[in-house]
Design a protein around this nucleic acid. Structure first.
Length: 582
RNA sequence: GCCAAAUUAGUUUAGUGGUAAAACAAGGUACUCGUAAUACUUAGCCGUAAGUUCGAUUCUUACAUUUGGCACCA
């Protein structure tokens, strides 16, 4: 998908189109006031205050029509430069523009405006020469958007659109949007019976169907093996904890709004756990530890519950009940670098196995000014943040830094990916924590026999199985690699009367795999079609030819070619594919 | 949570102020079949609750859920 923001020409075009949108809106709703209209990766938007008016479906075609009309008139787009004083005078009735002007850099004494016909907007530019160039655009969606991105502020009306130089480019882009929707994991999940939801169970509480459960189990086995090799010890802990547990950890103060409300049971007060750190801290605290024992790596496939905002819930990607591929590493300060490095390497290893290429490392740091969210200890934060930078630079990893994205207890490295529909999400995460071990008074005995506080690294490679499954479904468009596919092999006998016995023999030979035998009384073409629709990796066709030569004929998903081999050769092929994860 | 829209059979969708339709899927019968749909046949549905109305799946309201964004986040 093309990044419009980064293409110089498209950036200019879309920016100008945002002005065209504003002008059209102004014509239709003279009371409209405008906030900002930036270019984004997907095109442009404009945030508009329409007073009491809210945009609905009917308005969009009218606005588009007005935009076309203005574009056809072909007014030139003229740049003026004015002083700050002039700008303040010019926009004296527009509180939004005054706000923008007042926040401009002190050194920006000259302010630029762009005028097209009867419309002038404060803008840095650049723009195309005339609105005539804005021919091939489309308004895509609209919604409410908080002023300055703050939910305490008024909600403005945001309209999104996109603009291209050529009709073909626009159509191509719209087609790509459609294709992206087709590989939405919610669609695939329904079509392939991966998961479902039911109002009686509740919002954001997906039910994993048998096909989904196979995928999840394979993911569990896969990552468990990796972690076992790396010295992780897996545990099981309850999905609830007392409120005191979370008061001790500090989550009660920092995370309560995201937790399900507490429940009273006899004399105890419980919450459904939103994360597993406190439980794992107590596993560490169960015995006394020597510096020789560290690092200790506690892993768990742990179900957590989070009270996600109702508007945020989405398929398997954002849920209220999730299973984390979680682990907590208890290390000495000297081991931080090494262990953090191993986690990053594990992430790279796993992403390689899944063929995931489009992801970004984000180093999530605290916002120094946010004393409410973040634990107040400048030294601790600086140390931790520098440590992470050091390791990433040492590994030569490309990353970007994000202020204010850290957890309340420490900085973290997140891996960001883009789903088929919607904004970027975090898949993997690795977080450094100096705080929780102190709060739980954890320690180990050092070489000199003194008590020391360990450092904790929180990490989740898949993030959650839920979200990772969603992502993999979209990456593969539902055509999962052989090792993950719920049904790996579909056997179709040509004729039930003559070939079913042979088909059953072959099924027996392949009993180590997930095999289905389609012995329904249907035509071969019909069964073949279903096999393809269900995206089954290998379909076997067994007829007289195969019976006579004691062979199997197979077709791989996505291929039109039928290949005939012995059963043993097929098994070898299957084993190779599973081993190579393709 | 906020703004907007949507909710009709297992699925995808059509339609209407007088309780509803199609395709696929499912069940049945016949065909015994060589790589993306054999034919015929049977059964099944208007998210929930109020209101307006002689009568509501259709109009109104509330709630629930879903979708696109915003805010929040694995």
């Amino acid at each position: 998908m093309i990044n419009i923001k980064e293409d110089e020409r498209l950036n200019k075009l879309n920016h100008s189109c945002a002005h065209l949108l504003a002008q059209a809106v102004k014509h239709l709703y003279p009371n409209a006031k405008f906030w900002v209209g930036p270019v984004i990766e997907e095109g442009f938007y404009y945030d508009i205050d329409l007073g009491d008016k809210v945009i609905t479906d009917e308005d969009i075609p009218l606005i588009e029509k007005e935009m076309k009309k203005i574009a056809k008139d072909g007014k030139r787009i003229v740049r003026h430069e004015i002083s700050k004083e002039e700008a303040l005078e010019m926009f004296k009735d527009d509180s939004y523009k005054l706000d923008l002007i007042s926040r401009m850099d002190e050194n920006d004494t000259i302010i630029s405006c762009y005028t097209q016909g009867d419309f002038t907007d404060l803008c840095r530019g650049p723009h195309v020469d005339t609105v005539k160039e804005l021919k091939h655009f489309k308004l895509l969606k609209f919604s409410g958007a908080y002023w300055k991105g703050d939910s305490k502020n008024k909600m403005l009306q945001r309209i999104y659109g996109v603009c291209f130089d050529k009709e073909e480019d626009l159509n191509e882009y719209l087609k790509e949007l459609e294709e992206a929707q087709a590989r939405d994991h919610r669609k695939i999940g329904k079509a392939l019976d991966i998961f479902t939801t039911n109002d009686l169970v509740g919002k954001g509480m997906p039910l994993w169907l048998p096909n989904g459960a196979i995928i999840r189990k394979e993911l569990e086995n896969y990552i468990y093996k990796k972690e076992q090799k790396l010295g992780y010890d897996h545990v099981y802990t309850p999905c609830v904890g007392t409120t005191d547990l979370y008061k001790t950890s500090g989550h009660w103060d920092h995370y309560k709004e995201n937790m399900f409300p507490s429940m009273q049971v006899d004399e105890e007060e419980f919450v459904l756990r939103p994360m597993n750190c406190p439980h794992h801290m107590l596993i560490y605290a169960n015995t006394i530890h020597s510096y020789r024992d560290l690092p200790i790596r506690i892993g768990e496939f742990a179900t957590d519950f989070r009270y996600e905002a109702s508007g945020a819930v989405k398929g398997l990607e954002r849920v209220r009940c999730m299973c984390q591929n979680d682990a907590h590493l208890f290390v000495t300060p000297e081991q931080i670098g090494d262990e953090f490095k191993k986690v990053v390497e594990l992430i790279l290893d796993v992403y390689h196995d899944f063929g995931i290429k489009n992801y970004k490392f984000r180093l999530s740091l605290r916002d120094k000014n946010d004393k409410e969210k973040y634990f107040d200890d400048d030294k601790m934060w600086d140390e931790a943040e520098n440590k992470l930078r050091e390791v990433l630079n040492g590994l030569n990893i490309n990353y970007y830094e994000a202020i204010g994205e850290a957890a309340f207890y420490g900085p973290k490295l997140d891996v960001e990916v883009k789903p088929a529909v919607g904004p970027e999400i975090t898949l993997s995460t690795c977080q450094l924590d100096f705080l929780l071990p102190r709060r739980f008074e954890l320690n180990y005995i050092d070489r000199e026999g003194n008590k020391q506080v360990p450092v904790v690294i929180h990490r989740a490679i898949f993030g959650t199985f839920d979200r990772f499954t969603a992502f993999i479904l979209e990456e593969t468009k539902g055509a999962l690699p052989l090792w993950l596919a719920p049904t790996q092999i579909n056997i179709i006998p040509v004729n039930n009367e003559y070939h079913l016995t042979y088909a059953k023999d072959i099924k027996e030979k392949l009993s180590d795999y997930r095999v289905k035998l389609d012995d329904r009384d249907e035509k071969l073409g019909y069964k073949m079609r279903e096999s393809v629709i269900n995206k089954i990796p290998i379909t076997l066709i067994l007829g007289q030819k195969e019976v006579d030569s004691q062979t199997v004929s197979y077709r791989m998903y996505g291929s039109e070619e039928t290949i005939t081999v012995s059963a043993e050769e097929l098994i070898q092929l299957i084993n190779n594919k599973i081993k190579n994860k393709n």
